[in-house]
Write a protein that binds this DNA or RNA. Structure first.
Lengths: 217, 217
DNA sequence: GTCTATAAGTTGATAGAC
DNA sequence: GTCTATCAACTTATAGAC
């Protein structure tokens, strides 16, 4: 029934919440259980399709308990997007940053793609409905995204300087690699046999092909 | 403020409805105005974030008028997704299908990417929230997607047979090209200077690089 | 800290006038 | 064919008991 490239499928089995220690350690156990439930709801049905009662029920709490830990539904959503972007950035920053542009780009894409496969549920929850955030919260996410973008831009520009990479389309190359990576959250599901690592290996190969002009042209 | 690779931005200017004749000609003028309004709403806020009153108001109709033309909000959403997939398929099928696998893949990706840039608002409305469709409607969309997928698979498999393309990762290549193409609906906006045609040219080049193994390996 | 009950407002959809 | 008025159900968030 499901197409291979779209991975069309419904049902709850596709999504999986991260371990509780994925979330801010300053939060209580109950608050982190709530975030685990919320991330499943948001990934499945988006912000507007999720009711606060669904979130509470998934964490085995009553309807009103959510509001003792978070100010609003938007605050729950923001905490998820914030945590997701901060964790992504931390994983990318853990890279030593040495070696040739080719080696560095492969490592960065591998980290980035593995993150989006492993945390595809978080990524999916973060990707859509960012417009519901307050102006201040939105600005905070955009700032984190700038930092993530700069890491990739830095490597691609360096590779373009020494003619390893396509210097004519730096923005296009960056956008394409980025599209490939984050779109993993759309199609990656539990029923696939592929591990996050194998997807990461394949996609870092593809990213290199995109960035590297063929010898003829 | 907006990142280049994410193209983060809010506001209504980003989205644009297709011409009325994009929709099923069997529908009345008012019904097609309604679809034009609905596609803007769904692209911006998703299915659950859109109220039937918003759709009606955008078409300069009263709240109840929607229900004289469509049975439900889901029926409006289905008509949009159906039209979007049918038009995409028709554009791909208009390709003559001759030439080498390289030439054919470039043409197909060009058509597909140009569609997703030109109709990025429709594509965005179609991409998310497909889970809200009834079982029958969902199955109809999945069938259309199978046909779209088969067109690309056909070319990539033929190219793999004559060693033009990477025979080891056909599914991966198809998925990557597909990700690149449909993700255009996420980032493509009116403020960019790039035309649908220039994006299509760049991305068909990238698709070829993904499908073609470098001479060394 | 978690619960139940409820307030205040919103939503999809329908009925009937013009 | 489009409008206004309205229903019944639902939703976020709060109040106050335990």
């Amino acid at each position: 029934m499901a197409t291979r490239v779209w991975n069309d499928q419904t049902g709850p089995a596709r999504y999986v919440a991260p371990d509780p220690d994925f979330w801010d350690p300053k939060l209580s156990d109950a608050a982190r259980r709530l975030l685990g439930s919320a991330v499943l709801c948001f990934a499945r049905n988006g912000f507007y399709g999720t009711r606060t009662r669904d979130i509470s029920a998934g964490a085995k709490l009553s309807a009103g308990s959510l509001y003792t830990m978070f100010d609003s539904k938007e605050a729950v959503f923001f905490e998820i997007t914030r945590s997701g972007h901060i964790d992504t950035l931390a994983c990318l920053n853990a890279d030593p940053g040495d070696g040739t542009p080719t080696e560095r780009l492969q490592r960065l894409v591998s980290i980035y793609v593995e993150w989006h496969a492993r945390y595809h549920t978080v990524g999916r929850a973060c990707q859509h409905d960012l417009a519901v955030l307050t102006e201040e919260h939105f600005a905070e996410i955009v700032e984190l995204r700038h930092q993530i973008e700069a890491i990739f831009r830095n490597v691609v520009e360096e590779g373009a300087k020494d003619n390893t990479f396509d210097a004519a389309d730096i923005d296009g190359v960056l956008r394409a690699i980025h599209s490939l990576s984050i779109d993993v959250t759309r199609w990656y599901g539990l029923d696939g046999t592929e591990s996050p690592q194998s997807i990461a290996a394949l996609y870092s190969k593809f990213a290199l092909r995109i960035a590297t002009p063929p010898p003829s042209s």
